Simulated assay, not measured.
Amino acid sequence: MAKKIVLLAHTGQVGFELHRQLQSLGSIITVSRGDVDFLDSDAVYKHIDELAPDIIVNAAAYTAVDKAETDENNAFALNRDLPEVLAKLSVTHDALLAHYSSDYVYPGDGEKPWSEDDLTGPQNLYGRSKLEGDLAVESIASKFLIFRTSWVYAARGNNFLLSMLRLGQEREALNIVSDQIGAPTPARLIATVTSLCIQKFMASNNANKLSGVYHLAPRGFTSWHGFAQMIFERARAEGVTLALKEDGLGQIESTEYPTPAARPLNSRLSLDKIESAFGLAMPTWQSQLCLTFDEWLEMNKS
């Protein structure tokens, strides 16, 4: 029997890709903010309870990291309270809950890649709200997959890739932070891996043993400056007209670019657990950027 999948926030950059990737797993029922107020826990429970899902995939989140510092109520409502409600629904319907978290739950120091069992220690309010969402899911749900991702981008939406392409066409010089290290993660990879993991989870005889927290990112690491550098290399190679001069990409440290919310310097994530548990071999961030850039090119053909 085909599974009934409830997908929250299908129009965001991750939700859009999930909507494409999950089609083969069952019938998808999308739930947007136009259908129900995600800030109203009772309304969310009632709405999704009536749908009787087999799988719940939560792509809804508060992602405005700096704004969260002064918008605590909404950040926690979306990043903690909503996952808590979905976890309760997953128990009610014996459903699998797939939820997304962040590298921001870790302290962000050192150079060693974080593993899923490392001590957490968020540096900002956004990170705290994501961590509390994780803890709520872990304490309530019996069948769940929490995917902690980093530096999410896509060929659509609002993200670093599109910001760089826009600024590179407007300015002759840019300075980009070079002391924050992580793995740029395209939304399409998140959706593809989510689909594979859900399939293996649902087919497993020991599905409950697969429940847990997993890092979901490509192989390898770079800085924001390194990421920008490759974006502009690809742009020039593909004939994209840039105002940015060949030597116009400068490096700065985080202290020279202060933001309301502190950013982790170390966003490296170990992938050993997800690769071992689900038999995956994660691709490199460079190969994923090439794929995403090609998609952007296709979408922006004049």
Rank of each mutant, 00 (worst) to 15 (best):
D134G: 06
R171V: 03
S163I: 10
A141F: 06
K112R: 15
H215D: 09
K112G: 09
A207S: 15
M164S: 00
A207L: 12
G212Q: 01
D179S: 03
S115T: 14
S115K: 15
I176Q: 05
K200I: 01
L210K: 12
L216E: 06
H225Y: 14
Y126A: 02
D134Y: 07
V137F: 07
T185Q: 08
N159H: 11
V177P: 01
L125W: 00
R171Q: 09
G182I: 05
L196V: 05
P122L: 02
V213D: 02
H225R: 08
N208Q: 12
A155N: 10
S115W: 09
R148K: 07
S211Q: 04
T120H: 10
R156Q: 12
N159E: 05
F147V: 06
A183H: 06
S129C: 09
K200C: 00
P184C: 09
K209R: 13
L161G: 00
Q169K: 15
R156A: 11
Y153A: 02
S139P: 05
E138D: 10
L161T: 02
E132Y: 14
I190G: 01
V193A: 03
I198T: 01
P186M: 13
L131T: 06
M202S: 11
Q180S: 11
P184W: 10
R219H: 11
L174A: 05
N159I: 10
Y126K: 05
L161S: 02
L145C: 06
A155H: 12
V152A: 07
K200S: 06
E111Y: 12
A203K: 11
S223E: 11
S142H: 14
Y126C: 03
R219V: 09
R148G: 02
W224F: 14
Q199R: 14
K200Y: 00
W114S: 08
F221Y: 15
P218S: 08
I140D: 02
L119P: 01
A154H: 06
A191S: 07
L119V: 04
W151M: 08
R156N: 08
L216M: 11
L196S: 11
L131N: 04
E138G: 07
A141C: 09
A191D: 00
W114Y: 15
I140E: 00
T185R: 03
G157D: 03
K143L: 11
F160P: 04
D117F: 10
L161V: 03
